[in-house]
Design a protein around this nucleic acid. Sequence first.
DNA 1: CTGAAAGCGCTTACAG
DNA 2: CTGAAAGCGCTTACAG
Lengths: 334, 334
Amino acid sequence: MKKVTIADVAKHAGVSKSTVSQYLNQRFDYMREDTKIRIEETINELGYRPNILARSLKQKSTTTIGVIVANILHVFSTQVIRAIEDVCNEKDFHVIICNADDQPEKEKKYIDMLRAKQVDGLILFPTGKNIEQYQELISENYPVVFIDRLINGLQTDTVLLDNEKASFLAVDSFVKHGYSKIAVLSPPIEPGVTPRVERLSGYKKALEHHQLSIREEFIVSGKTTDMQSLIHHLFQLSEPPKAILATNDRSLMELLSYVKKNKLSIPEDIGLIGIDDVSFADIYNPGLTTVAQPAFEMGEKAAELLFKRIQQKEEPNQAEIYRFEPTLIERESL
Amino acid sequence: MKKVTIADVAKHAGVSKSTVSQYLNQRFDYMREDTKIRIEETINELGYRPNILARSLKQKSTTTIGVIVANILHVFSTQVIRAIEDVCNEKDFHVIICNADDQPEKEKKYIDMLRAKQVDGLILFPTGKNIEQYQELISENYPVVFIDRLINGLQTDTVLLDNEKASFLAVDSFVKHGYSKIAVLSPPIEPGVTPRVERLSGYKKALEHHQLSIREEFIVSGKTTDMQSLIHHLFQLSEPPKAILATNDRSLMELLSYVKKNKLSIPEDIGLIGIDDVSFADIYNPGLTTVAQPAFEMGEKAAELLFKRIQQKEEPNQAEIYRFEPTLIERESL
DNA sequence: CTGAAAGCGCTTACAG
DNA sequence: CTGAAAGCGCTTACAG
């Protein structure tokens, strides 16, 4: 099964490689009709299929971009990926997805591999720990767009949720429904992880705004594996909360699991709102009130920004932060 | 920002390109220690990063495989993809995921594009409509593995669930709990779509096995958009079913949506089992009994089979069908 | 309207 | 132990 190359086609059709190449690239301006037909027939006869690798090597473009997500387990990541893929498919670009799994070393490795593969650009959900690498990408003027997390001091386009607003929407809604003892449940608060940091500060600001006191014991954050006991502890307080804001889908799942195991009822025993519009929010009993991120728009924006950078590589690096508005979807959990 | 190439490194280090290449490929057998160090230093100094494209062109391997799923919206697809990625990451392979979105033309386009990109192999969740293309891949001895759907007459490795068994497990469980009026809810039954066809026939066989009559009006299949009215019709029958088997996650969602809208209770008004272990099965109220596919094992197997084919291209095409066992996860929905 | 030639950035026998 | 040369399969000025 020898590979058919452009040279074989040329020989068979009795023309030069250049002419076949012109044909492949639709440059018919100066091509006689009969040459064109002859080439077409030969291609079909031989079953020729172009090797894009060779073209990419010459043209210095692979029409492929890379996406590295901090953790693919978050619904938000998967939704954004879908959006990015949609945009790319339209432009006949391919996407290579990599999951850093919250491990900075993996992220580093992926950045290197993708660049070695000559992808035309990168969209990063940064782990936040590889500052040097990020800096290098930017100073080399490599097309890159960040999403979900803000890296301080980096001069590059970043697409973010208005995280504080997300918490505000939730707390406002709780207050409107008469709740005042409102706790928050979050994954571990780490400095680089913008959504967690900002959603927590948004929660605090919202409480202040409603003149509710901030109780340290109502602020619960920890790893998935510790969540159950942390939540348990929360409910054992002498004055337990009557409402909980779960700041992402993973925390919400843990909370629901606890609620179910302990036969609590929503919203009678505990009101709740989750940030991230989980797939089952609608069909859950009761329906879950959520704060949705416009994941599709955010992914679309990230892709568009990246394409803009890919196209005008020379341009000075205009770095902008794009904040997207969350929306409250009221259902029955408070 | 000129690209640094192997030639630049060679010049700077005062050696030939060949020697640098040896270095890059860890062929140190005949390399003097000082040359090695000199090259290493030069690489760091210049910030050289190899262009894998050029290597791939020469070596005829991209260490990349392609995966084309019929529809990425099925949990099963996403689970299998995760497994494939895990296996590939271990071997330092990359994966390009494409979503045919149930459109055969898209599938066709993706097969062509991925081959043009010289991926080393392909894992296909086939739409079932591009028989000629599939046949071509196989007769060209191109490394390919099929998963989820069986294409009749194709001589190639295929990884499948024992779909009939999945239905059997569900029906058995219903019967054990005293149900006899058991309906089935499925996406449209199309000839090429193995899981749907086999799960339906499994349902019928299981009823027969338990000496229950098969009622045509209990067999409901249709597009997502028609599901609500189809389900409604089912419940309007003079003798409505007391149990429903949802043959995949999408059908289950529709069913739960209907159940909720109409304030039915599970399992009092209707018992149910879903094939596919949805993420919220555990935390749903009540917990949902499901039949789980060993998606991880199946993805792993597909990847392993593909790697085997990639490695021994000359081998005669031994085509085998691998059937995997589903498992019943009993919760509280019947 | 078409062809010969150089080149993209690597690897790989082969020679010495 | 290292280098010169050919080649992977394309594209792209340039010449005619």
